[in-house]
Write a protein that binds this DNA or RNA. Structure first.
Lengths: 185, 185
DNA sequence: GTTAGCATGTAAGGAGTTACATGATTTT
DNA sequence: AAAATCATGTAACTCCTTACATGCTAAC
């Protein structure tokens, strides 16, 4: 029960690792951190926080209530803080990142926490991401050449733009991998 | 009941507009058409097709059964074909495309069928997409400048790359809008 | 004192995936 | 005749959004 998973869990734990935050603020930081990659709504954030409390990864702190013994059922800010288990779990998620880490939905979040990730794991994720994109590139290019003549101008333009975007990301990854390699020496 | 919606409906109708196809082949074309933008699984395609049959947009044709009076419950290819209502509905979806047409998940599909879309609708979608991206650009840039000093190197790099990708798409849209404008004369 | 923005929460449901199950056809 | 690929289908589930509902706090 209440087993939060998905990208959000990692993102929340990572942000709370920096400093305790309440939900509303957390959501803003989340959407800033992920910038143009994705956005979350409160409808998924709050249940996720409850789930993380239930599994002991984070604890609630109600500053208002403690400060001036206000009624407990009143609506007030709830500041969430990582527990020791939460920190451990976060490091675990970063260290044991599997192939899902280089899928579209997850790569950005993992990358955002590279500062706290071991160099070898960083390299594994960057290379995983790159081969993932290269597979896609091969598939699309093959299909494209095969069908080219049967496609109309707009479809071709869409394909061309899509391919170019993926190629750009591959070049970006190449540079990152190179600079990781250089730092290793 | 059985009211299929989402991008898939439009994509399926659009592909069947070109030629009748069976599910398996349809899925391949779908994923080719959308190239690097998205992919669908059978688990969503087949129910979608059933739904479109239920609402009279398409009809089933079982060539194997008809050809050599095979048992009807046998597994055989099912070729789907657009009905008159289906064609009408497709044109309707293209012509009455609302703001959702320029969201990330839908833009690609609408663009792919621009060849069958009126020039003024095309322009509306391209401009809608562009202002959508520009809004995002403004938001991310503002947040970025505000937080810059508190972000680590990898997070900054992620933001930078994200911004650059969106800026590139805006430039692409600018060119498309310009060339649509030129053709109008 | 009222509007705008901060803040928390939930119920219903959309749009898909995964994993499975089955069978037909082609290739080796 | 085995293996690969073509082909259809479904049940359970995931992850998230939308729309709603409530209340607090600052600014005008």
């Amino acid at each position: 029960m209440a087993k939060p998973s998905g990208v959000m869990e990692l993102a929340v734990l990572g942000l709370l690792h920096e400093s305790p935050l309440h939900g509303y603020e957390l959501r803003k930081r989340l959407n800033l951190l992920l910038g143009s990659f994705r956005a979350f709504s409160y409808g998924s954030l709050y249940p996720c926080l409850k789930g993380l409390v239930a599994t002991g990864m984070i604890v609630e702190d109600r500053p208002d209530v403690e400060a001036h013994g206000a009624e407990a059922n009143r609506r007030s800010k709830i500041v969430y803080k990582l527990t020791a288990e939460g920190k451990e779990h976060f490091q675990d998620l970063l260290a044991n990142a599997g192939p899902s880490a280089w899928e579209d939905e997850n790569f950005g979040v993992h990358f955002a926490f590279f500062g706290r990730t071991d160099a070898d794991v960083r390299m594994r994720i960057l290379q995983g991401r790159r081969s993932r994109l290269e597979e896609r590139l091969d598939a699309v290019r093959a299909a494209f050449t095969r069908m080219r003549t049967r496609l109309d101008d707009y479809t071709i333009e869409l394909q061309r733009h899509g391919l170019e975007s993926v190629e750009r990301e591959v070049r970006w990854l190449n540079e990152l991998i190179k600079s990781e390699d250089d730092q290793r020496k």
